[in-house]
Amino acid sequence: MSTTTRYTVNCSILLTQLPLHERPAAAKAAGFDAVEFWWPFGEAVPAADDIDAFVAAVEGAGVHLTGLNFFAGDMPAGDRGLVSWTGREDEFAANIGVVVEIGRRLGTRAFNALYGNRLEGADPAAQDDLAVRNLAAAGRAVAEIGGIVLLEPVSGTPAYPLTTAADALAVIDRVRSEHGVDNVRLLADFYHLAVNGDDVPAVIASHAADFGHIQIADAPGRGEPGTGDLPLAQWIGDAEARGYDGVVGLEYKTDAADPFAWLPAAERGPVGAR
């Protein structure tokens, strides 16, 4: 990997042998200065004490929270976001306020809004219309703190309708054209795109300068770089050469004693504020 690439550790999929509040410090001890999380609470609007404890864990570790997901429902049970989930509009709206609060306190500027699965018996067009409205609302809210909303194609969930970069970009275009909100960006997870059969080099060539974020894992297996056959270093280098200047999220699964052994210590940080 490039010595100029800036990495952030996804502490919702890595370091999971530790309690959640200990993971930022573990990432720091491993040489990183930045972390990201999926939604770290069990509900859309957690108790104030729980928010304070999470903020304290990040601040106390001396790391920057570069990214945070909106509440996505019960992820272990298969939920993948509320953005298009008809009937849970109020829950998503309430979550937006909490996300902005955490972002303001921790200097976080990138917020991933998982689109949500197709619902049995629901009209897909109605779900898509709701998603566009919700993304616009989220975009307007995080703009108050200089933030962006990320929209991500996902693999492994047949009911999730965004599988390619083009799928996500079409939604982003609707948010911009119908609501005038222009701070929703593509989250280019190279693992998900590759597994779904997207043309990752073409996506990079056409859109790298506009990526809101990059995440990586190798395939097959979603392991650390080097465990599969994806040319991750090449793709990252190409994206950076075409104008991407953000961090690269490490979002892979591993049972290795040292989950970061593939990355020399000198290349792990610092990243500073995004």
Rank of each mutant, 00 (worst) to 15 (best):
M1T: 12
T5R: 06
R6P: 00
L15K: 08
Q17C: 07
K28D: 03
K28Q: 10
A29I: 00
A30H: 13
A30R: 07
A34K: 10
G42T: 12
G42W: 01
V45D: 06
D52S: 15
A53H: 12
A57H: 11
A57W: 06
V58H: 04
G62F: 05
G62D: 07
H64Y: 14
A72W: 00
A72T: 01
P76W: 07
R80I: 12
V83R: 00
V83S: 01
W85P: 00
F92D: 01
A94L: 07
G97T: 12
I102T: 09
G103F: 05
R105A: 15
G107K: 12
N117A: 05
Q127A: 12
D128T: 14
D129E: 14
G139Q: 04
A143E: 06
G146E: 11
V149T: 14
S155W: 07
P161C: 05
A166V: 04
D167H: 08
L169F: 11
D173G: 14
R174V: 10
S177E: 13
L186D: 04
H192V: 10
L193W: 06
L193T: 04
G197W: 12
D198W: 05
F211C: 13
Q215F: 02
I216C: 15
A217E: 08
P220R: 01
G221R: 13
E240V: 11
R242I: 01
P264W: 09
A265K: 07
R268N: 13
G269I: 05
G272I: 07
